[in-house]
Amino acid sequence: MSIELTINERPYIVDVAPDTPLLWVLRDVIGLTGTKYGCGIAQCGACTVHVGKDAVRSCITAVGDVAKPVTTIEGLDAGGNHPVQRAWRDAHVPQCGYCQAGQIMQAAALLAETKNPSHQQISDAMSGNICRCGCYQRIQSAVCIASRGV
């Protein structure tokens, strides 16, 4: 079945079953591998993308239900210089880096809605994103740094 999508401001037509999770369409069909698989049941946040302005878990989002433009890590900023991306580099957040696309997309959605989040608000918003390397304290710092630049 043909499904029309807008991803990172580009139109796509994909031929997949409408219940296919957006994650696997992005990764396997379109080839945008920046969005990661971590759990498949919306428990870890590695697959976070924006649908419209909302951060969603693409692993449980059926592609047939996607009605708004999708933004992935590759499209967050043309030069990779979204304030959250810059803050992530300034704070040297990543260790292995695998979860960071999801973390960055989640943080960007938080800051789009809440300009100067408190420590608690950051914790609440980011608590669905797991990092096994344990970069959480730098994520806290980076979101604060980014909040000054959004």
Partner: peptide, 27 residues
């Protein structure tokens, strides 16, 4: 010296095992 892959990680270009794609590849 920041980690070598820092920029690529923040823009989704760093390549992990899960990201390998070969022409005609099966899953």
């Amino acid at each position: 010296i920041p980690i070598y892959d820092l920029f690529d990680i923040t823009v989704g270009k760093a390549q992990y095992g899960y990201d390998i794609r070969l022409p005609g590849m099966k899953y």
